[in-house]
Design a binder for these strands. Structure first.
Lengths: 333, 333
DNA sequence: TTGAAAGCGCTAACAG
DNA sequence: CTGTTAGCGCTTTCAA
């Protein structure tokens, strides 16, 4: 592979001159500049970023850790982080942590060895380890999608309480009288917040959310199936349902339909996230959209700011959810 | 950041000794080894991979180019490539090319500057450019998911003709008499092959595939909608349908259902790929699974082999598709 | 405006 | 078994 030195020899100048031409760090005589550029083109020279990064103590790469690549919502996170990164000339290294402490730690270690520019966590497994690594390595880190309180690590998340409020109000607005919900695990903060907003709003409208109408579980299709099956088997009468994400909603809807219950005519169902398949589903899913693009944009922006040492005055960003009405709650035309 | 030299000083040995301890390249006195390891642990030393890679002229990173990150099937490619890479201690750099020549070229350039270990293309936009880059850079490259004939670039793909055969046979087996299809663009080789297998098989069974029963378009949900709408508007009677991927199938099914046509009772519909949402759909999708995991495993394996200079005797791998029967073709229980 | 020289952090002969 | 030394390819003072 041709090096800068080769180019220099070819152009009859010193390596430093070639470097200056490439990086535009200093004025170079127009004539020699031409010569250098010709030499570069003729041998198809490609600077060695490894050497450059070593010298400059800075890379153009950032890392992204997600709990599951093939999950439809992290999928969107990956897409938009890549987009924002690429816009800034940054490259993306992806790691699938599977929500596993060890894998997370290994990934962080790998990234730090690479002297990565910054790390974005979409969910973190071991908070204290991340805090430690942040402190000891001085590498910019950002946490998205889950609350994280630390004075060095910015955090951009969705207003989950508000999502619960919106869900409850929409179902009430659809005329639902008995509303049930299938939630994510209450061990997870965002499930608790969503649920709190949901319950508070129902109560404000004079409805009580009986324990029997709450099914807690995972953020999966299977949990949607399990929840509805339980409700139906226990003969809980209900006409409205909120699933904490679109996978749960899909599981709920397919189970209802298989039992001959119509959605939305008999039971209105809504989800959350607005993942890709939400509008392809039949019936299409009413859901609460997360502003993934903005969320990711902000995250990469933080990495940028942290890298350049810019002062950050706000370490927490709370983005608003947005209602998307489709067929699963409103009677089909 | 502490360097190997610091560790050496701390342990009272030379840098080379520390290097040897870390890499286990040579026997080191058990006692000094202990001392070095203590020193490493005490300062939490992390080798600089940039320096190491520069010196060794080899990185632990590979690149993956996909036309669209958030597409459900590339999604699976990303997942499995990451999995295979991580198993081998390789890290994954992802680029979204958006099927765009320039973006593809920029990504390749970036990767080559990084002196990446290898590049996996899941679809390539500019074949001749890829061939050029492969030749001039000597970087291992692999193309998956689309036929590519080159004596330096291995190629692992699905047997698309066979997929067409399986689709046709399944629909015929379901008792369909008039079968239609919504295909991807015939500019793309794999669409042609799938279609060929499909048509040949229908003919073998004495059925003709009239032009009016073929709708060609993109691999999108919208195209599924468009195709069915056209068939219905033109009053083409049909009782079986194959969409060239699951998105098309989903678009077809939702459109049929919205028109009051039952799937599979009135029309059996099948897709292809077996993406994540296929089994979550209602009715769940009968489809033809691509062995994504094996496909990705093989691709990373090729990169590995190419890197280590191992002899490769077979540059083309053709994997078999697999039928997955679900509700959308077989009467629901 | 340009070149010489040092050094980023690491590994690998080579010598001892 | 261990240390010395050179060098991977680049940038950046410092001097000319």
């Amino acid at each position: 592979m041709t090096s800068l030195k080769d180019v220099a020899a070819l152009a009859g100048v010193s390596p430093s001159t070639v470097s200056r031409v490439i990086n535009g760090t200093m004025f170079v005589n127009e004539e020699t500049k031409q010569r250098v550029e010709e030499a570069i083109a003729s041998v198809n020279y490609r600077p060695n970023l490894l050497a450059q990064s070593l010298r400059l103590k800075a890379t153009k790469n950032i890392g992204l850790l997600v709990p599951e690549i093939a999950h439809p919502s992290f999928n969107l996170v990956i897409k938009y982080i890549e987009e924002s990164a690429s816009k800034r000339g940054l490259n993306l290294l992806i790691f699938n942590t599977h929500n596993n402490y060890t894998r997370e730690a290994v990934a962080i270690d790998m990234l730090l060895r690479q002297r990565i520019n910054g790390i974005i966590f979409s969910r973190v497994s071991d908070e204290s380890h991340v805090v430690n690594m942040s402190r000891s390595s001085n590498t910019p880190m950002v946490v998205i999608d889950r609350a994280f309180h630390n004075e060095k690590i910015p955090n951009v998340i969705l207003d989950n309480y508000q999502a619960g409020v919106i869900a409850a109000e929409h179902l009430i607005g659809c005329g639902c009288k008995r509303i049930a919900t299938i939630t994510g695990s209450f061990k997870i903060g965002l499930s608790r917040e969503r649920h709190q907003g949901f319950r508070d709003t129902l109560e404000k409208h004079g409805m009580v959310l009986d324990r029997s109408m709450v099914h807690e579980g995972e953020f999966t299709y299977e949990n949607g199936v399990a929840g509805v099956t339980k409700f139906l088997d226990e003969q809980i009468g209900f006409d409205g349902l909120w699933g904490h994400n679109d996978l749960i909603a899909a599981g709920a809807i397919s189970t209802l339909c298989r039992r001959g219950i119509r959605v939305p005519e008999d039971i209105a169902v809504m989800g959350m996230d607005d993942v890709q398949f939400a509008e392809m589903y039949y019936p299409s899913l009413t859901t609460i959209a997360q502003p993934y693009q903005e969320l990711c944009e902000k995250a990469v922006d933080y990495i940028d700011k942290l890298t350049s040492g810019e002062r950050i005055d706000q370490f927490q960003v709370l983005l608003p959810p947005r209602l998307v009405v489709r067929e699963s709650t409103c009677p089909r035309k």
